[in-house]
Every structure is written in structure tokens, then in C-alpha cells.
């Protein structure tokens, strides 16, 4: 349940940037390979925001679909797991171009 400390960091980042205004919505960018489960984040968000500028705020999670680059044949392809092989040459040396994002993208404040 590391989503709890992740959510605490989200609240901390938002409060630092909200300038004392009440936060209405938070948008996160969450890579599918970030190791963070959206449902668990949503569960923690309600608990972690109580008594903060974010209380009652809407949590918007934008999922980033992973994309890999085969270092063998330079093919770019959608990745669903770390053990995916290149669909073109079957190689496993894949550089992940995106999909591990764990970012606060945007705030909407009052």
C-alpha cells in the first residue's frame, strides 16, 4: 500500500502550489507501469485530503500507456508489462520510452 505515501506526497505538492486557495480538482499523470494502482490512489485520496486545502477535491487520473523501443531492431511498440518482447524481432532488451509517469500535472483552484 505504498499508494498511501504517494498520495501524501500529492497532497504536499498541491498545498505548496495552491497559494492558500481551496483545490477543486487535481490531475495526475499515471503511467500503467508506475507501480501505482489508480483504485488504491482514489481510496487513499479521500483519507489524505481531510482537513487540507484539497478536502472534497476531485481526483482526475490520466493513464499513460507504456511505449517501448527495441534496442535490437529499433522498433517502437506498445508495452503492457516489463517482460514483453519486441513484436518485430522477439528481443527482450527494450527501453521504456514512457509509461512509468507518476506526476501531478495540474491543479484547479477556487
Amino acid at each position: 500500500m505504498h499508494e498511501l505515501s504517494i498520495t501524501q506526497s500529492v497532497v504536499e505538492i498541491c498545498e505548496q502550489n495552491a497559494g492558500g486557495r481551496r483545490v477543486l480538482a487535481v490531475t495526475l499523470e499515471l503511467g500503467a507501469l508506475s507501480g501505482c494502482v489508480p483504485d488504491a490512489l482514489e481510496f487513499c485520496f479521500e483519507a489524505c485530503t481531510k482537513g487540507t486545502l484539497l478536502e472534497g477535491a476531485k481526483l482526475i487520473i490520466e493513464r499513460v500507456e507504456p511505449k517501448g523501443l527495441c534496442l535490437g531492431c529499433k522498433t517502437e511498440f506498445p508495452v503492457s508489462a516489463y517482460y514483453d518482447s519486441c513484436p518485430s524481432c522477439g528481443g527482450f532488451t527494450v527501453e521504456l520510452l514512457r509509461g512509468e509517469e507518476l506526476r501531478v500535472k495540474e491543479l484547479e483552484v477556487e
Binding site: I6, S9, N17, L28, L102, V104, E108, V109
Partner: peptide
Amino acid sequence: KKISIETDILA
């Protein structure tokens, strides 16, 4: 009312 943050949560 939108504020762009673009901050890594694990920063």
C-alpha cells in the same frame, strides 16, 4: 483557475 504543476510525485 488552472495551475500547471508537472511535478514528479516522488520528487
